[in-house]
């Protein structure tokens, strides 16, 4: 039964308004193989469960067997974190959050279903992460459960998964938010993955007739360049690619990374591109989309 398939998530957020149309509930999958330095959900990179710790809230009661934040179990230092969540429940101060909770699809649906009333006319469920397709069985199970109940589905993916796995999701969701992270020849350097197989996945998705919206984070010092613009402009020509959304960099991931016990050295060198560039790209991509008879991004 798809409802019994389990997977690891780090959050389910209701009333999400940036992850596809309408009011949505977004399921954030734990774990991603890419290593984009600007990641705004850095706590989601690891596949294993761990506990995020907000030092400002801690009252030092010691109920969690205080350890430096990380992967080791707070209750039993001999063990790695198993995701049992006991320390989180015990913490009186609400300083701990369990990342990588193991849930059955049905348990996720129980949350998704609660906002059914609000999804009309265009909202629904979005799978995000992390990389949802890195837990392909769980992703497929959730998509099937939602579809069976008539809930609109969107999938946000980097496309950086093996071709055979990627193809299994085609036709299984209503909208794909496909991340394009860098110009082709810098993809490996910036994200750790080659662009060619990603492109092939995108191409295949487009050929199969899936609705696609491209999404691109823009970090002035890292991935903003003429070649990236050219790439987006070309990809817009693919059938069923509806638009390209530009997401100027924001620093909201920083604190979360520290709380999850990881850090990145490059943050000081990151900022959003100047507004003129953003406006210019938006305008030109919008014109291109319009000339192709596609919707202009709002």
């Amino acid at each position: 039964m798809p409802s019994d398939v389990t997977g690891r998530i780090f959050d389910i957020q209701r009333y999400c308004i940036g992850d596809g149309p309408g009011i949505r509930t977004t399921v954030f999958f734990q774990g991603c193989r890419l290593r984009c330095p600007w990641c705004h959900n850095p706590e989601s990179r690891f596949f294993a469960p761990r506990v995020s710790f907000r030092a400002e809230s801690c009252i030092g009661c010691g109920r969690c067997r205080m350890l430096p934040p990380g992967e080791m179990c707070r209750r039993n230092p001999e063990m790695r974190c198993s995701g049992c969540g006991i320390c989180v429940k015990e913490c009186p101060a609400g300083a701990l959050t369990l990342l990588g909770r193991l849930l059955r699809a049905e348990e996720v649906m129980n949350v998704v279903r609660r906002d059914r009333f609000f999804y009309a006319p265009s909202g629904g469920m979005t799978l995000s992460g992390g990389e949802p397709l890195a837990q392909i069985e769980f992703a497929l199970a959730l998509l099937e459960c939602a579809r069976r109940e008539g809930i609109h589905t969107a999938l946000e993916t980097s496309g950086a998964v093996p071709r055979e796995e990627f193809r299994r999701v085609i036709g299984k969701c209503d909208l794909v938010l496909f991340d394009i992270k860098a110009a082709p020849d810098r993809y490996r350097e910036l994200t750790g993955a080659d662009f060619t197989p990603i492109y092939e996945n995108l191409k295949h998705l487009s050929d199969a007739g899936s609705r696609i919206i491209l999404r691109t984070p823009l970090v002035q010092q890292w991935n903003v360049c003429g070649e990236l613009f050219e790439l987006l402009s070309q990809l817009l020509e693919l059938p069923h690619v509806e638009s390209a959304e530009l997401l100027p960099y924001h620093a909201l991931g920083r604190g979360k990374a520290a709380m999850a016990g990881s850090s990145e050295p490059a943050w000081e060198t990151m900022s959003a591109p100047p507004p003129e560039l953003l406006l210019d790209w938006e305008k030109r991509l919008g014109e291109k989309a319009a000339s192709l008879g596609k919707a202009v991004p709002k």
Binding site: G18, H40, A251
Partner: peptide, 15 residues
């Protein structure tokens, strides 16, 4: 914000 949202008071001071 796009793709990511949070309860303000649960964010680190820096954010």
């Amino acid at each position: 914000v796009s793709g990511f949202s949070a309860f303000f008071t649960r964010l680190s001071r820096e954010v």
